[in-house]
Nucleic acid binder design. Structure first.
Length: 409
RNA sequence: GUAGCCGUAGCUCAAUUGGUAGAGCCCCGCAUUGUGGUUGCGGUUGUUGUGGGUUCGAGUCCCAUCGGUUACCCCA
């Protein structure tokens, strides 16, 4: 049948039985985050445009891709394109910096970016993430990464690669970018066409160019770590020591940068080999100056965000069958109210039932029950019969005997 | 945003150089079965994504549009 309406580009329905996969992933996230005593935070779907433009960076792609509109009073509103800025806003607005000097929170939510859709890149997409405020100690960086790896492990996702880097503070990055631009300018003639185009706009992108001719030039490019302060270097090496101690394999990538302006210090990314170009499962790092910039007290912070759609592409798990306990047949309308009472009673006693309100004939109901792995079938007429679908034994019982009978099986 | 590929029944896909739109699965029913996961028979579903155009004739060719997908870009 042709539907009169179509879903909006870049959005998708999550239909049964696939919803079970989502439920499984979400409950794993809740469970692990709570094991680490991170508490869930939920924020509104909409925020004022300024919150994002000013803090994730006016020139970043994310801020250009926001869904923005003016409401009836002329205020500029945006659907949230990411969660860190809203979490920081809520953290400051609610005075959590006083209530929780060390504040650890996590979230699972939908976000919106008006990008060109692709597999693993939708316009409404789902992420979970964690944020820890109040310490700049390296063990906090390590704990954040540990949570990410634990969740992936629990979801049976392997073949992942953790890349890590330290990008210094914003001054360091500005210095680095100009140093890099100078370097590549000196070698401009040997660069690929693609990279020449990147030179002005985003010289750091050249660093992970796939073009063969760029490789040797990249090899000798200046590294950001040569510009780091002693303190930053120490912090970085201590994070790496923690990871080694935890047995978490990583790949030190001196060229890993992040797309949002607020990051500094440690940055990391978990990628997978199997998904094409949308291979970043998880990305994060420190943002030690964001809280202050947004009007709160000086508060260091670190966190990550992970894409649930991309994780689902990796976590191929089998979908369970319905596994109902009891299939209910009540085809004679004279006994409908009796049937409904029995159902109510069964559900209150924690049985999972399926009531065939469509009243198929009994033979097909049995087939249907077996197909859905039901253990019992209860047929309600004047008599009530309970059929054990495994032993195939059928027994007539009175209404009050149903529960004791089932318990005896 | 730029470029390429794709769009046929609920699902997976067929349809020879443009010539009457099909199959399997699923679903529903009937029958069969050592009488509940078998097997057989029958049935429903499509203005071939949409709108134009070329042609005697378009699923097939052209244009536009919508959607998907791949690469670039970027990111989770």
């Amino acid at each position: 049948m042709k539907s009169k309406y179509q879903k909006i580009k870049g959005t998708f329905d999550i239909l049964p039985p696939e919803t079970e996969v989502w439920q499984h992933i979400e409950s794993t996230i809740h469970h692990i985050c709570q094991q680490f005593s991170f508490q869930e935070i939920r924020t509104p779907a909409i925020e004022s445009v300024d919150l994002f433009k000013r803090n994730i960076g006016d020139g970043t792609d994310v801020s250009k891709e926001m869904f923005v509109w003016k409401d009836q009073s002329g205020k500029e509103i945006s659907l949230k394109p990411e969660m860190t800025a809203p979490v920081v806003r809520a953290y400051i607005e609610s005075g959590f910096f006083r209530k929780y000097p060390l504040c650890k929170m996590y979230y699972i939510d939908s976000f919106f970016r008006r990008e060109k859709p692709q597999k693993g890149r939708q316009r409404q997409f789902n992420q979970f993430g964690v944020e820890a405020f109040g310490t700049k100690n390296s063990e906090q960086d390590a704990e954040i990464i540990l949570i990410a790896t634990q969740i992936l492990k629990k979801l049976n996702i392997d073949n992942t690669n953790l890349s890590i880097n330290n990008i210094g503070d914003s001054d360091t990055r500005i210095k680095y970018e100009s140093k890099l631009r100078n370097y590549f300018n000196d070698h401009k003639n040997s660069l690929s066409e693609l990279s020449k185009a990147r030179l002005e706009k985003n010289p750091m992108r050249i660093l992970d160019s796939k073009e063969k001719e760029d490789q040797t030039i990249i090899k000798n490019a200046p590294m950001i770590k040569d510009l780091l302060s002693t303190e930053e270097k120490e912090h970085f090496s201590s994070v790496l020591t923690h990871l080694k101690g935890l047995g978490i394999n990583y790949n030190e990538n001196p060229y890993l940068v992040r797309g949002l302006d607020y990051y500094n210090g440690t940055t990391f990314e978990i990628t997978t080999q199997s998904t094409g170009s949308q291979n970043a499962l998880c990305g994060g790092g420190r943002y030690d100056s964001l809280v202050e910039k947004m009007g709160g007290p000086e508060t260091p912070a670190v966190g990550f965000a992970a894409g649930i759609e991309r994780i689902i592409l990796e976590a191929k798990q089998e979908l369970g069958k319905k596994n109902i306990d009891i299939y209910i047949s009540c085809n004679d309308e004279k006994y409908t109210s009796k049937g409904l009472n029995i159902i109510q009673n069964l559900v209150e006693n924690e049985y999972k039932i399926f009531f065939d309100t469509n009243k198929k004939n009994i033979k097909n109901q049995i087939k249907d029950a077996v197909k859905n792995n039901a253990k019992f079938m209860i047929t309600i007429n004047q008599e009530i019969s309970v059929k054990n679908l495994i032993s195939k034994k059928e027994t007539n019982v009175s209404e009050s005997e149903i529960l004791p009978f089932l318990k005896n099986q």
